[in-house]
Design a protein around this nucleic acid. Structure first.
Lengths: 194, 194, 194, 194
DNA sequence: CATGAATGAGTCTTCATTCAT
DNA sequence: CATGAATGAAGACTCATTCAT
């Protein structure tokens, strides 16, 4: 399903992905029919299959591209900050901000984790995310800023905190950013440094 | 669909729930057909609809009953331990052990969170779990064992750490219990106490 | 798709096959939708998939079972006739009679030959038919009734004559049996004996 | 859809027909999409509809033009041979050679016979072929070379033998020409002459 | 002439649910 | 209680055909 696309083609493809991501997040992947997606865009069903070979492929693409986007955001936020602890903090805040602006992806990732064919994509995304954090943690250990511990395990713990607080406070209720982000940062940093 | 069941009836019902939970966890809720469930048990479709009024109700029941079971396990583990910090630790360890033995529920909870009709059940489950932890945290704050902070936020953080580490190390790889549980406990306690 | 069927079930299955065979023969396999078949029987679409796992499987079953039927007819006609030449003649006449009564299968076989997945079934059917004829021819050769020649090749020639005359005179026009059957028999016997 | 075509246009058109004939023969008419045809030639869909008004028309054209080709071959082979029996023999051999070199058409003719809209074309083709043979047979009867019999019926029989042997030995197995062609000829001539 | 894009009716197939026996 | 059978709406996907560029 690699096709040479004109600009118009690339735009359409993106429209489909955006629209689908929203619907998937709202109603769930399975309850959303391909017809729902194309109807919302006001195009024929054929359009969908011109750009994606299946509904499954579509979700995989969404998963991949959104992860790219999140990661780009983190890297921008971190810039070339020299202090590893601060880098972790900036990463946490950037992630929370991104999720708040893209809440639909949160649900989508959650769902993707539950079916093997999608979970595989998710795992490869998560590996990248963990590796990024691990790098900062290792730096911090080397600099003696935090205790010597398995960097991967604590990286996972940090991810867990961020995801849970994001879900609990941003989506289910509608809390102001700051307080929760601060709490996440301080819990994690204390967890890391002891 | 409240029926008076004989003992045999209650057993059948439980069989259906167990079997369905496994299948749902393996393949996902939607990809699992009612036919798959009854086929695995070698019974007719009528049996299913004798005990449950719909596939949806079945999942709701599974969600409720498994949460009950998890909570019972936590309470047994905690017993009447007087130290709130220790109670938190025991709760964390009990949860991780339970999930390790019931990994299929993990996936199931994850999925349930993604469709509103099930998410409601999950939220009410989670509220209970958070409330339990919050109680210990408040006690610890009162006793001056940990800093004064929003107990609910940190309770959520604890849940996030437990879930993420469980998923990452128990299911995706196959790590020995102890090391990960220890890491979870120490990260959380440091996060709490600073 | 092996299912234990009640008598009612077996009847339904047969109804579906008969009805489908007619439609396939009239309009062609592809142009006939599964919906056309079940509509004609006045049943729901699910019924079809209760008995056959796919439209493809249905045609394969039709092919197999109709060939069985034709062969049974030949065997009945031949009985225990001792003269191999007469056996060949009886076989030719029985085949032509059967085809005349089941003209729809003729078309169906013809179509089946054009798509590999069905052609395979057809080939295995045809092998049986050829083997039957070959047996009589060999007997005739042994008895010195016909010249020594490759029995399989002439068996194929006989089949070709029968099929072509059947098609040309029974279906496209509507000739009285006798004359054409006689012509087929005499052409073939002369072809065999020289 | 009669267009004045440049030389380049005529070539394109022929390319499309050749390519389509191959695909139709390999996979069948219905399973072959117009997209498959143009893809194989590396052109856009517009090209196809420039030269043919529909997929159906394309097959009809293929049928017609291939029959023309086969007939031309027979006429060349027969030349001005004076002996009608030899003319029949030469016709049989030419047909078998042509089919061997154009096996894809064999399948195609077979399919075309199964759907009325194409069968009509085929019938008119076949009438011509039968008429050709009938002419030779009549000549042979007049010359007293073969018995007086319905020339059309035996012409059909001859066609049947040729087609069946061609299919059975040239396509399904891969026999050397000569032996099978000889067998066809001698079976037919014996069938004719008695 | 040619292409990428679009259309949308039509196809096969699935599945939650119901029901006669 | 249990089963084999049936229902039919709904879903994913296809494809002949058309059209703007």
């Amino acid at each position: 399903m690699r096709r040479k696309l004109t600009q118009r083609g690339r735009d359409r493809r993106q429209q489909l992905m955006d629209c689908a991501a929203e619907l998937f997040a709202e109603r769930g992947y399975h309850p959303t029919a391909v017809a729902d997606i194309v109807d919302r865009l006001g195009v024929g069903k054929g359009v969908f299959y011109w750009y994606f070979s299946s509904k499954e492929e579509l979700l995989v693409e969404i998963l991949r591209s959104s992860h790219h986007d999140l990661r780009r955001r983190q890297q921008v936020a971190i810039g070339d900050e020299p202090d590893p602890i601060v880098r972790i903090e900036l990463g946490i805040r950037a992630s929370m901000t991104w999720f708040r602006e893209h809440r639909h992806f949160f649900n989508l990732f959650q769902f993707a984790a539950t079916e093997e064919r999608f979970a595989a994509v998710l795992r490869s995304n998560e590996q990248v995310a963990i590796a990024d954090t691990v790098r900062h943690i290792k730096d911090a250990i080397v600099e003696g800023r935090i205790a010597d511990q398995d960097p991967e395990v604590v990286a996972q713990a940090v991810v867990g905190v961020v995801e849970q607080l994001t879900r609990a406070y941003f989506f289910e209720r509608d809390e102001p950013d700051e307080r929760v982000a601060n709490a996440a940062v301080s819990f994690c940093l204390r967890g890391l440094t002891g």
